[in-house]
Design a protein around this nucleic acid. Structure first.
Length: 711
DNA sequence: TTTAGGG
DNA sequence: CCCTAAA
């Protein structure tokens, strides 16, 4: 069998892959890539249909292969050819399927498991005063707390959303701690719950939704862990007749913003073709952007860049921009948690890492953050109260599985731009911050649930299904408030945000004037939405930035110390940017967040193995192109790293392995390929100088190694 | 930009 | 996964 296959394919198992490596320069660009890829892709696509069968076969084949290992090479070849060819395509296919399924597919299905109701009790603060001025009571940190900031911002908002925000803010500030979520298994209020639950779903826990604008007093949100199936569709939610613009926005944002979704989509689509041509660029762009963002450069002002870019080039760059933004977005949210955790560990404080340009913004958040993390009690100092993620989750839930209890210590502020002249008074500063906060709030926020740093997007899943149980991961449970960025539906908008902004003090600017962003609708960051309700097409933006939290502990006064930080350059956007970084604590906060962790699925591993078998190690870029072209989140470096871990995994005992178990068969192939290519020196042209001889001699070795392991 | 490795 | 030195 093996031999046959080989012959068919025309090359022996690990031999140098089909595509001789061209000099990098040549290889590089599009044309080359594309061509090759396309052809491959086509093949892939075709094969894709067969994938299912192949899988089955594969398994069987694997079994057979093991048995037949007698010939050293044969094993490989077998694998390679037998499975390999067949599999080849799989990856693509699989991916298409997987991504979606993994994250979202789950939803509707299993409602079954425990029905857990979650109740959120939020205390509300006094409703903002409707007069032009909002009063926000900031209980900022303990000591400071009780300052009230008068915000010029006018309540114009009226919208529920705004209200919600306000409420939130209040809560956040003063009472964050107050916010408690308890999950009751009880079925009480079935109906009511349901309603709320739905709302929540749709809104993704939009505060607005949860809080009735009018009733400041207490909100009890209950939602059944299991959501109604309908809710799945976010769109539907958006569509909700509900007048609140906020809703629609939220939803949109989410979707748009979420990188995952995008990726998934992209994956699926990509194979198709056309897009491809552009893709590479896009990807690269992303990458680049990412780097930039991540890197120190960030400080400078990613935003600016984005803005610029977007402006200049609409098209391609535009994409980039988006991507980037998206990226950030996700990252921010997801990653944030990670960092946060770390930070927490070290300090209990929630430092938002953020590091981004947001810094400028961050200030306010920082303050807030700094204030105290300490208590669960109203920690968030207000201003930024808007903040996003829940910091500490206590797992108090003792008892029954049915209840999941935890307290949200604080939320992080997504991003605030504050611009204040140095000469400004503290009071002004406070107001400014407050405005920024309210601006964000006005837009509306939606809540995202994170578990282990990963967003759980499927609103329909139950807590149990999502892995949130009283016993398990409460510590890894987090929440984020995300601004709704997306395109606001204009119609809707009227009600909310815009007016408010406009009304708001022009001077104070929630956004730093400095940031050019403002100008361009495109570059919006979080704040943007506020002011630019309608405009943003691009808005996907990075709303997420996490503000960099300055570790500085200004428990006592938030404002003052920070204020400087806040200081915005009055005039120049650029300057402001520059300034900002300085203020912040530069370093650590800036650290970019890690990318969200995305464990390789078995199918991905298989694709990787397959590709490596064919291409060898040392050609990660080619591996990427061959097997993961559609997976934007898998870089060649990632693949290389994964291979490294696979090799390691294959060498350790199964008991020592963690995560999703990788079929032994694949691990065997990993070892075999690893050994094989080690000798072959895949890297070099592959053709074998020594290899000729080596191969022969070595081959046996490989086999042995392989055999030994697998069997 | 890619590779190759260390962290 | 990240970060980087080398290439």
């Amino acid at each position: 069998m093996v031999l046959k296959k080989r012959l068919e394919h025309g090359f022996s198992g690990f031999q140098v892959p089909t595509i001789p490596r061209a000099p990098r320069s040549a290889r590089r660009r599009d044309p080359y890539k594309k061509k090759v890829d396309d052809s491959q892709i086509c093949a892939f696509e075709l094969l894709a249909s067969l994938a299912g069968k192949l899988l089955q076969e594969t398994e069987s084949s694997s079994a057979s292969s093991n048995a037949s290992e007698g010939n050293n090479r044969s094993a490989f070849e077998k694998d390679v050819f037998k499975q390999g060819r067949q599999h080849k395509d799989k990856p693509v296919k699989k991916e298409c399927v997987e991504p979606g399924s993994s994250e979202e597919s789950v939803f509707a299905n299993e409602l079954t498991s425990g029905n857990i109701d979650q109740k959120f009790t939020m205390r509300e603060f006094p409703p903002p005063e409707s007069d032009g001025v909002l009063e926000c009571t900031q209980n900022i940190t303990k000591s400071d707390c009780s300052d009230k900031v008068n915000c010029d911002v006018k309540p114009v908002i009226c919208n529920s959303s705004k209200r919600a925000f306000e409420n939130n803010v209040n809560k956040v500030e003063g009472s964050f701690p107050h916010v408690e979520e308890s999950y009751h298994s009880n079925v009480e209020n079935g109906i009511e719950r349901r309603k709320q639950g739905e709302r929540l779903e749709t809104g993704g826990l939009t505060l607005a939704n949860t809080c009735s604008p009018n009733d400041p007093i207490e909100l009890c949100v209950k939602f059944p862990a299991m959501i109604s199936p309908d809710s799945n569709v976010k769109l539907s939610l958006f569509r909700d007749p509900v007048p609140n613009a906020s809703f629609s926005r939220h939803r949109n944002d989410i979707k748009l913003g979420s990188r995952d979704d995008d990726e998934n989509l992209s994956r699926c689509k990509k194979p198709s073709t056309k897009v491809k041509a552009y893709r590479p660029l896009a990807r690269i762009g992303d990458r680049r952007i990412r780097k930039l963002l991540t890197s120190k450069y960030w400080k400078v002002a990613p935003k600016l860049r984005d803005c610029e870019v977007s402006r200049n080039d609409g098209g391609a760059k535009h994409l980039r921009y988006k991507r980037k933004t998206c990226y950030n977005h996700d990252r921010c949210h997801h990653d944030t948690l990670y960092k946060r955790r770390k930070l927490f560990d070290q300090r209990s404080v929630v430092t938002s890492d953020g590091g981004f340009s947001s810094e400028s913004v961050s200030n306010s958040p920082e303050k807030a953050m700094n204030g105290d993390k300490s208590d669960s009690t109203g920690i968030l100092h207000g201003a930024t109260g808007v903040s996003s993620s829940v910091i500490g989750c206590q797992k108090s839930f003792h008892s029954k599985d049915s209840h999941v209890k935890f307290s949200i210590k604080s939320f992080r502020v997504p991003e605030l731009y504050v611009d204040v002249p140095e000469t400004a008074t503290i009071g002004l500063l406070k107001r400014t911050v407050m405005e920024a906060v309210t601006a964000i709030l006005q837009d509306g926020l939606h809540v995202e649930v994170l578990l282990q740093g990963k967003k759980i997007r499927d609103d329909n899943r139950t807590l149990l299904q999502s892995g949130i149980s009283a016993k398990d991961n409460l510590d890894t449970l987090g929440f984020t408030l995300e601004p709704n960025i997306e395109e606001t539906t204009p119609s809707m908008c009227s009600s909310d945000p815009l007016p408010s902004l406009s009304c708001d003090t022009p001077e104070l600017l929630t956004r730093s004037p400095s940031t050019p962003i403002v100008d361009t609708g495109t570059c919006d960051d979080l704040p943007k939405p506020l002011p630019l309700p309608l405009t943003n097409s691009d808005t996907q933006v990075q709303s997420n930035h996490e503000s960099v939290s300055s570790p500085t502990d200004t428990l006592t006064n938030e404002v003052i110390p920070d204020s400087q930080a806040l200081v915005a350059v009055p005039d120049m956007s650029m300057e402001a940017l520059a300034v900002i970084p300085v203020n912040q604590k530069p370093r650590r906060s800036e650290l970019v967040q890690r990318r969200t962790r995305r464990p390789f699925s078995v199918s991905e591993v298989e694709a990787l193995v397959q590709a490596v078998e064919e291409l060898g190690t040392g050609r990660w870029r080619d591996v990427k192109l061959r097997a993961f072209e559609d997976a934007d989140h898998r870089t060649y470096v990632d693949l290389k790293d994964k291979w490294k871990t696979l090799v390691h995994t294959a060498k350790i005992s199964p008991q020592q392995r963690r995560g999703e178990p990788v079929p032994q068969e694949l691990l065997d192939r990993v070892l075999a390929a690893h050994a094989y290519w080690a000798q072959h020196q895949a890297k070099q042209h592959g053709k074998h100088n020594q290899s000729g001889t080596l191969m022969i001699t070595e081959a046996p070795a490989d086999r042995q190694g392989v055999e030994g392991i697998p069997m």
